[in-house]
Computed example of a mutant assay.
Amino acid sequence: MADITQMTDAQKLKLEVYRLVMNDSAATEKAIEFIAGNELNFELFKDAYAKTANETTALAKTEKAIREAKEVLDLFA
């Protein structure tokens, strides 16, 4: 039996984002670009994404979450 290759931390983060945005590859790409491997960006994105229920698509939710997360990032500068 072959060994299973473990995921890297970066792969785990990307998979979590992919699942969060309902397996939408375009939304995942935008979110990953914003997050850029930064844990704070990821946490802010997750919080903002959870508040986007009024948006109709994963991509619209992602874009709104990114805008909101960017506004909050200023508090951490």
Rank of each mutant, 00 (worst) to 15 (best):
N23P: 00
K12T: 05
R19P: 00
T8S: 15
R19D: 01
N38W: 06
M22L: 09
V21T: 04
V17L: 09
K51L: 15
I4P: 00
E68D: 14
A50P: 04
L73D: 05
A65Y: 11
A27H: 06
T8E: 08
D74Q: 14
E71L: 15
V17H: 02
L73K: 13
A77M: 13
F34M: 08
I66L: 12
N38L: 06
Q11G: 07
T8P: 03
L73I: 06
K12G: 00
A60M: 10
E71G: 15
K61C: 07
F76S: 03
N38Y: 08
M7H: 05
E33C: 10
S25V: 10
A65S: 14
L40N: 12
L15T: 04
K46Y: 00
A31W: 06
A26C: 05
T8C: 07
Q11R: 09
A69Y: 06
Q11K: 11
Q6M: 04
T62I: 04
D47I: 11
Q11E: 15
A10N: 06
D24N: 14
E43W: 01
T57R: 10
E55Q: 15
K46G: 00
T8G: 06
K51T: 11
E39H: 10
L59E: 08
Q6C: 00
L20P: 00
L15V: 03
A58K: 01
A27V: 06
F76E: 08
D74E: 15
T56M: 11
F45A: 04
A60Q: 13
A65H: 12
F42Q: 08
Y18H: 09
A10F: 09
I32A: 13
D24Q: 06
S25D: 12
M1P: 01
K14E: 14
L15W: 06
N41F: 08
K51S: 12
E39Q: 14
F45I: 03
N23L: 03
A27P: 02
V21Q: 02
E71S: 15
N23C: 02
D9N: 08
I66R: 11
I35W: 05
L75C: 11
I32K: 07
A27L: 08
T62W: 02
L40S: 10
I66T: 09
K70N: 09
L40A: 11
I35G: 05
A58P: 04
K51Q: 14
S25W: 05
K14C: 03
D24G: 03
V17S: 03
L20N: 02
I4W: 09
A36L: 04
A77E: 15
D9L: 10
A53M: 12
F34A: 06
Q6F: 04
T5R: 14
L44E: 14
T62R: 03
T5I: 13
L73V: 01
L73W: 05
